[in-house]
Amino acid sequence: MADVRKLLERAGRTYAEEAGIKLADTPAPLYRLLVLSVLMSARIQATIAVAAARELVRAGLGTARRMADASWQDRVDALGRGHYVRYDESTATALGDGARLLLEEYGGDLRKLRDRAAGREELGALLRKVPRLGPVGVDIFCREAQQVWPGLRPYFDAKALQGAERLGLPRDPGKLGGLVDGDDQARLAAALVRVSRDKKLADSLR
Rank of each mutant, 00 (worst) to 15 (best):
S37A: 15
G12P: 08
L126V: 10
L101H: 13
A64K: 00
A42R: 14
D74G: 04
L36P: 05
K112H: 11
G174L: 05
L101C: 06
L34A: 14
I48A: 06
L127G: 10
D3Q: 04
L161N: 05
R128E: 14
A117F: 12
R65Q: 09
D88V: 10
P27S: 04
E89Q: 13
L95H: 06
P173I: 06
L123N: 12
A118R: 11
G12I: 01
M40R: 08
E121V: 07
T91Q: 02
E144Y: 02
D183F: 02
D157M: 02
G182T: 07
D183E: 15
R86E: 11
P173Q: 04
R65F: 00
L127F: 13
A64D: 05
L36A: 08
L79G: 09
L79N: 13
A164V: 04
R111P: 08
E121T: 09
I21H: 04
G96I: 01
H83F: 15
M1I: 06
A2F: 01
L101T: 07
Y106W: 15
D25S: 13
P29W: 00
L95C: 02
Q185H: 07
Y106S: 08
E105G: 06
D25Y: 04
Y31P: 10
D69T: 00
G98L: 02
A52M: 07
R197A: 12
S196P: 09
D88H: 13
G96C: 02
V4E: 02
M40G: 14
D157L: 03
V85W: 15
V76G: 06
H83R: 15
L169F: 01
R206G: 15
R120Y: 04
R187W: 00
V4I: 10
A64T: 00
G98Y: 09
L152A: 07
